[in-house]
Design a protein around this nucleic acid. Structure first.
Lengths: 337, 337
DNA sequence: AATTAGCACTGAGGACCATGGAGTGCCAGG
DNA sequence: CCTGGCACTCCATGGTCCTCAGTGCTAATT
């Protein structure tokens, strides 16, 4: 049904359209690609490809443009991830080394990815759930307030102010801190709820209320708001593209963190590159964009995702290469921290 | 030179142009505003206003458009800050209360401001320099590493990992923590460098190296990266506007945090509303935008700035009202924290 | 059976032009 | 000093024509 040559034609159509942003015709194809056949033959193939829904014409007597289905086939079977050039790899390295803390690692990563791909880059903060508790700190803030700081082994710090405790006794806080750390330090976050269940009973009567408040805030801060934190860069790159949907819709979608999180989360095959093309994205405003995403983490434990958002008409091999490379480097940096 | 009526004409031109985004002619003005004179008279006034550089025509036989200078006069003398409606004030209140930590306060504030003004909102994190140290925490991370957490009275938390310390002794860390807190807790950040100067000498010989490392990281984290943190929202609102400069340039400028920080920092009159119009902005890409900014803080101590970026053709009274109101509310929330 | 050359046909986009209308500047009269 | 009147300007709109890239089809060729 789709012989070798038809696939070659599809590949050529995608590549040319990505380059020129103009519908590509049979003549142009015959010239620029060594397909070894005449334009007429290519036309015949194009008809077949169009019947199968891989390409389409904007109007009669125009060249062809790939459909989402066409891009899908291209990504799945006609292209391979393009490794970065040596210069690019060196750029990544020098860009990422020298970051002093997690915030800076993330900030640099996202800018780097945006620059490499010339598109919008998204980086999700390392998930809390997969990491373990390094230390819990409780600090009396004066008045009836307390600050709780949870430090994880991935370098992430979560802090909360706990209010309305009544009188806060420094010794009681200190005791509670000790108990807490003995109970959960080193533990996987997922294991924390179980480990603290019994704690209130071990606390002397008069401080039990405080302990319960602290624990509830702790659990809440672990359960909620985990993978919520996301950073963007390169939105300016969108201005150069003209979208089928309005630019406004795309920008709006990008500001909805929850949308982005779901988007990254929907990876088909974890720990691999995922590409979602056009209408495959559930979100209205992103119908004319594609998203290339990947997991990153230390070892083979995935901590979070990074990704790139661009027009469906994007350089998939190059973008995939950049995303994969950056994901790997971030993993290394994180492991080295 | 500029009598009452000419000023009224200028005001009318600005208001109409902001509403319609089309050059406004003498006839339209006479109709829509009760100026009490005929179009011909208005035309004469317009000639005068144009000679003085307050308005201009895109081309002969078109209506007039305000220049930057015209907007400047309008803002300075012809308009007053428009107070928010009751509904809007209630919206602010319900939107800002219930934020659990500083991150969330800032995040909500910026979204709120973007929504109220339908433009791009910028919020700077409360400056460290003006606040004082609540507590310093040192946490051994295992290996040769240490985490330092500085908590300030404005709820901001700064953390750093300190590496390459050689063997870390838990007791020594505990001692150092105690000394540090005794030395600087409650102190204004600006006073910290002076207060820790002598500390290393009080540390036993064998731990002095560690103390010096810790202190240098502490000082560094206080001096650098202070007002660097900035949050944006509402970039999607830019898509609706058509800029003289390309949208891309504007988006690029907005991604440059340093540019924004300088921009906000250049407030003419601290603790007041500042408006910078068009070419008054030093940055190329922002030549066709205006920026309305204000300080916020607790009491009359300014902690940082918030602002709005939009086309020069913006609703200045309304935007100024929103910025002022939000700045005040944030101050209150921060004070209540 | 597949490929190719030839050819008539299609539709978008650009150049060109005419027209209408909003807006101006200026002058003379109130 | 204001106003009505008037001639003038120039943009925007819309229609027409033409070009041209690209198509689909058919007949010839391999």
């Amino acid at each position: 049904m789709l012989d070798e040559r038809k696939l070659a034609v599809l590949r050529a159509v995608v590549e040319d359209f990505v380059n020129t942003n103009e519908p590509v015709g049979s003549k142009a194809l015959a010239d620029r690609h060594r397909l070894g056949v005449s334009p007429a033959t290519i036309r015949n193939d194009m008809v077949a490809l169009e019947e199968d829904g891989y390409i389409t014409q904007p109007h009669t007597s125009a060249g062809r443009v790939p459909t989402d289905k066409g891009y899908r086939l291209f990504v799945d079977r006609l292209s391979s991830v393009k490794p970065l050039s040596g210069a690019e790899r060196r750029a990544i390295e020098s860009f990422l080394t020298g970051a002093v803390d997690l915030d800076e690692i993330v900030a640099r990563t996202v800018r780097l990815l945006a620059q490499l791909t010339r598109q919008v880059a998204i980086v999700q903060y390392p998930s809390l759930t997969r990491s373990s508790v390094q230390h819990v700190e409780l600090v009396p803030l004066g008045g009836q307030r307390l600050m709780m700081v949870v430090i994880t082994d991935t370098g992430r710090v979560e802090q909360r102010v706990i209010d309305g405790l009544g009188e806060v006794d420094a010794d009681a806080v200190s005791d509670l801190r000790g108990m807490l750390n003995r109970a959960i330090a080193g533990l996987h976050l997922a294991a924390v709820p179980g480990a603290v269940e019994d704690l209130p009973r071990q606390v002397p009567e008069e401080n039990r209320a405080m302990a319960i408040s602290v624990l509830s805030v702790l659990l809440e801060s672990l359960v909620e708001r985990h993978e919520e934190k996301i950073v963007l860069a390169g939105t300016a790159n969108l201005a150069a593209v003209d979208f089928a949907a309005s630019l406004r819709d795309v920008l709006e979608a990008l500001e909805e963190n929850m949308v982005l999180i779901r988007l990254l989360g929907e990876a088909k095959d974890p720990s691999m590159l995922t590409v979602r093309i056009g209408a495959e994205n559930f979100h209205e405003g992103l119908r004319s964009t594609s998203i290339v995403s990947a997991d990153y983490g230390v070892g083979n434990q995935s901590l979070a995702k990074i990704g790139v958002v661009g027009p469906t008409r994007m350089d998939y091999p190059g973008t995939m290469g950049a995303v994969r490379a950056v994901a790997r480097y971030v993993g290394q940096i994180l492991a080295g921290q």
